[in-house]
Amino acid sequence: MAVLARQPAGARRWGQIVRAVLIAAVVLYLVLPLFSTVLFSLATAWSKTVLPEGYTLNAYRESFADPQIVRGIQRSLTATLATLLVGLALVVPALLYVHLRAPHFKRWLEFLAIVPWALPGVVLALAVIRTYISPYNVSRPAVLVLTYTLVSLPFMFRAIDAALSAVDLRTLVEAAQTLGAGWGEIGRRVILPNIAAGMLSASLLVAALASGEYVIARLLGGTGWKTFALYQAEAQFTDGRVAAALAVLGFGFTWVVSMALIAVAGRRGQAGPVMNK
């Protein structure tokens, strides 16, 4: 804190004011659309007045009473979780191998992990449909999960690679081995704490991507396996307030999950980039 004491007090206060204004403006910008969505989900009628004419919880009751919507929520959760697990299972072993044993492979992996960035969602869905679904009619949910894994590959790869690059993993592992640690212990006490934060930020991004994704789900999943986002879009044609209520439920769910993830990562010894000072 000696750093701050050296600065002139005026400049410091001015900096704080700028920061406060910036944060306030950004928070307002981010919160206002959430606010309008919440208002619409609670409105009895809202078509000509500044604020809704009255308030009701009907839209929420309807959402929970509809078994199809509940199924859609379950599907989206399944898809998100599966995407996360498949992504981690692909990326973590590959990156560990590269960092520990074969650094010369890294450039190639990096290239492969960047490719999905260059392909917009519509394009990816089209390519996958024409490769697998049109000719073979393979399981749509499985292909959907694999496509989400593909789309989230750059996030997954970058986040975990960044976490691994931040430490000299090779030296740490060798040190642990010299001290007589087995691979199980190394995994638990050396590798995991170092990539936990990377996994957290990757998970948040993957969850954000997979849980509310619409375009790919519509093109790939079709009506056989409708996810939450598809029901949400459909509700736009039966009752906009239900669509808004579903969006609000989505916010609530994301909030709970991300706070839980942050708390878990925080407990892991204040580890990693996100929570690092």
Binding site: P33, L34, T37, G212, A233, G250, W255, S258, V274
Partner: peptide
């Protein structure tokens, strides 16, 4: 980070509609 996680999940049709309502 919680707010950011929630808003990063907000896109597509619902987001456009939220702006229309605003």
């Amino acid at each position: 980070l919680g707010l950011v996680a929630v808003t990063s999940n907000f896109g597509g049709i619902p987001l456009s509609f939220a702006f229309i309502a605003l």
